[in-house]
Amino acid sequence: MKKMFALVSACALALSLTACSGGGSAQAPNNNNAGKGDSFPNETITLVCPFSAGGGTDIGARNMATALSADLGVNVVVENQTGSGGWVAWTDLITGDYDDGYTIGLINHNFVFGELDPENPRDYNLDDVQVLCNQVVDYDVLAIRANETRFTDIDSFIEYAKSNPILISAQATGITDGESTKAEWFNKTFGTQITVIPVDGASDSRGMFLAGDTDILFGSISDVNTAYQNGEMKLLCQFAEERSEFIPEVPTVEEATGEKLVAFAARGYFYPNGVPADKVEFMTNALLKSMERSDYIENMAALGLELDNTSGEAYAELLNSQMETRLSIWG
């Protein structure tokens, strides 16, 4: 009996320890670099990912944590604090006491457009954070199924969509959502009749599209590239300034139709406003340096993501860049 109890409690203890440490077991830190150069980080650094484990943002953050940990010689862990499309984590980071620079947040476009959300207007915008640097830029594309017969290129699609209802899926129906914004832009610019079905995530969108429940797919290059290369989807256009190196044969929407729309997702890192300027500078440089590591570049390339290292003011501008477009589209 006593043995049993000892076993159970030992098990419990061991497990709670794994549970506590597991979330952060990003890679054993190599301590060679500790103590050399600037002494800023000497404790564990936390990257707060506002989305769930296994998502694109999370995997990007984990790659970054590994690289950063190897560079700085301290543990870097990813903590997933999910909820309300990221706003639980963002609100906590902005309102809480995280001024010591050991907690870094992840930021994306959802943050920028949060204050425009008609149902749940958010209280914070880019003025409430100090952005450090970007990590990834992922341009959007318009995809159709490989066996689609009703339309084969952008012109025939627009022609078809003018007189027939078209269904797409998106994660929200308003200005905060990139897919809905593109649908609205098509409707306003070309007089198409695109209706949006709200779904929970990008993978739901792909499922409904493959099943034929929706007619076209607005997705990002990283989402659709494999299916495109396998011949399961065709890409009609990309919403980029110039053609992406991943899909150089697909025209931009401007080349295809003469009308310009740039749409992309960008995600990177930020500090709360209270973190002192020297730490902001230190961490920005540390992140930029980590992004030059060859193992990091290799791992990120496997994900099919376009790397980007815009930092500081320029990164804030990048995040803000689609604001005007969206405001004008939605009037």
């Binding site: 296994g54 999370d58 993978s203 739901d204 499922g207 299916a227 399961e232 791992n299």
Partner: peptide, 25 residues
């Protein structure tokens, strides 16, 4: 198809991507 139907398979989906195994044919 790359359609995760539950929270568990959603994490597995991420793991597949992370290891360069894009779901699909």
């Amino acid at each position: 198809l790359g359609i995760p139907g539950s929270p568990v398979t959603a994490i597995l989906y991420g793991a597949l991507l992370m290891h360069g195994l894009q779901p699909g044919s």
